[in-house]
Simulated scan of single mutants.
Amino acid sequence: MQLPSTLSGVKPAGLRVESVSWGGAVRGSPDEPIISDISFTVLPGEMLAIVGPNGAGKSSLLRCLYRYHRPDAGRITIDGEDIWQMKPQAVARRIATVLQEPATDFGLTVAEIVELGLTPHQGRMNRHEAYAAIGDALQLMALEHLAPRNFASLSGGEKQRVMIARALLQKPDILILDEPTNHLDIRHQLEVLALLSRLPATVIVSLHDLALASAHADAVLVMARGRQVQYGPALDVLTPHAIRETFSVEAVIDAHPATGRPRFSFHLDQTISGRP
């Protein structure tokens, strides 16, 4: 999938996370934050994959990155500017999100949901340019035939593709996606990750599939129990030892015979299978 000109023109931003913690009050104790002391830097145009077991704090971290949760400690900056010192509309123009939670559709069609991606750019695009961009976003995600359908009538995978199309229409400098391959069939998983890795934007994505993370991301952040375990290039971070310690499974990593990319095979070790 190639990005059409109507959806290009973004200026990828650098994102820096400095000693961020959040959620102590939610758990009931300031000493037990949901995420704690997270620090990393994503360079403009890079793709970061965040991986970890369920409950690791991946979604909570993403909510801090797109200015939904204000950190209890630390700071998050875009090109050196603290996101909490920026106006909400300025953040909305620079950051787009695709979330796990089903979107509220209010009876809208697929085309109308995608069109919402233009909201931060109102007054910056004429009607002809807007229609062309909407059409290109629908085509890019293979949604043209679904344009008049009610969003609520779609399958989970179709809804996910609609939300990605809406985010692309926003033309963000930073695109944040929480488990974007959930509900997608194998072909669409591969196509979506390939597209994300080629976007001119800075991309931050949480994933369960370590093979997809390794194949497409420039860097991987491994989380467990709200803490940062490792951060760095996928081949340095996703080792059998790190996978065993983080996910409580044994891993065998070899080269895929067709692509040469890392291939992960997992099995339970009875000595660690009872871990929480």
Score class of each variant (00 low, 15 high):
residue 2 Q to Y: 12
residue 3 L to V: 15
residue 3 L to Q: 10
residue 7 L to A: 01
residue 8 S to K: 14
residue 9 G to F: 09
residue 11 K to V: 15
residue 12 P to F: 06
residue 13 A to Q: 04
residue 16 R to G: 00
residue 17 V to K: 01
residue 17 V to D: 02
residue 23 G to Q: 05
residue 24 G to Q: 00
residue 36 S to A: 05
residue 36 S to H: 04
residue 37 D to Y: 10
residue 40 F to R: 08
residue 41 T to E: 01
residue 44 P to R: 03
residue 46 E to M: 05
residue 49 A to L: 03
residue 51 V to N: 01
residue 51 V to F: 02
residue 52 G to R: 00
residue 53 P to S: 13
residue 53 P to Q: 05
residue 55 G to I: 08
residue 55 G to E: 10
residue 58 K to T: 13
residue 59 S to P: 03
residue 62 L to I: 10
residue 68 Y to L: 13
residue 72 D to H: 02
residue 74 G to K: 02
residue 74 G to Y: 08
residue 76 I to C: 07
residue 76 I to P: 14
residue 78 I to M: 14
residue 79 D to Y: 08
residue 81 E to K: 14
residue 81 E to W: 04
residue 83 I to E: 04
residue 86 M to A: 14
residue 87 K to I: 02
residue 89 Q to N: 14
residue 89 Q to W: 05
residue 91 V to P: 14
residue 92 A to N: 06
residue 93 R to C: 10
residue 99 L to D: 08
residue 99 L to N: 11
residue 100 Q to V: 11
residue 107 G to P: 15
residue 110 V to N: 10
residue 116 L to Q: 15
residue 116 L to G: 12
residue 119 T to P: 06
residue 121 H to I: 06
residue 130 A to E: 05
residue 131 Y to I: 12
residue 131 Y to E: 15
residue 132 A to N: 06
residue 134 I to A: 00
residue 134 I to Q: 01
residue 135 G to H: 10
residue 135 G to T: 08
residue 135 G to N: 11
residue 137 A to K: 02
residue 137 A to T: 02
residue 140 L to R: 01
residue 140 L to H: 02
residue 141 M to N: 11
residue 142 A to V: 12
residue 148 P to R: 13
residue 149 R to M: 09
residue 149 R to C: 04
residue 155 S to W: 11
residue 155 S to E: 01
residue 155 S to D: 04
residue 156 G to E: 06
residue 158 E to M: 07
residue 160 Q to P: 12
residue 162 V to M: 07
residue 165 A to I: 06
residue 166 R to A: 15
residue 167 A to H: 07
residue 169 L to P: 14
residue 171 K to I: 05
residue 171 K to T: 13
residue 172 P to D: 03
residue 172 P to M: 09
residue 173 D to C: 08
residue 175 L to N: 05
residue 175 L to K: 04
residue 176 I to P: 08
residue 177 L to C: 15
residue 177 L to H: 13
residue 179 E to M: 06
residue 179 E to S: 12
residue 179 E to H: 14
residue 179 E to I: 12
residue 180 P to M: 04
residue 186 I to G: 11
residue 189 Q to I: 07
residue 190 L to T: 06
residue 197 S to F: 01
residue 198 R to Y: 10
residue 199 L to K: 10
residue 201 A to T: 11
residue 203 V to K: 07
residue 205 V to C: 04
residue 207 L to Y: 03
residue 208 H to N: 12
residue 209 D to G: 10
residue 211 A to L: 09
residue 212 L to H: 08
residue 213 A to P: 11
residue 213 A to C: 03
residue 215 A to V: 06
residue 216 H to G: 01
residue 226 G to K: 00
residue 228 Q to D: 00
residue 228 Q to L: 02
residue 230 Q to Y: 03
residue 231 Y to R: 00
residue 234 A to R: 09
residue 236 D to E: 15
residue 237 V to R: 00
residue 240 P to V: 03
residue 241 H to P: 02
residue 241 H to A: 13
residue 242 A to V: 12
residue 243 I to F: 00
residue 244 R to H: 06
residue 245 E to W: 03
residue 247 F to I: 05
residue 249 V to I: 15
residue 249 V to M: 06
residue 250 E to G: 00
residue 250 E to T: 01
residue 251 A to R: 02
residue 252 V to A: 10
residue 254 D to G: 03
residue 255 A to D: 11
residue 255 A to E: 11
residue 256 H to P: 12
residue 257 P to V: 08
residue 258 A to S: 09
residue 263 R to K: 14
residue 264 F to T: 00
residue 266 F to V: 09
residue 268 L to V: 14
residue 269 D to I: 09
residue 270 Q to N: 12
residue 275 R to H: 15
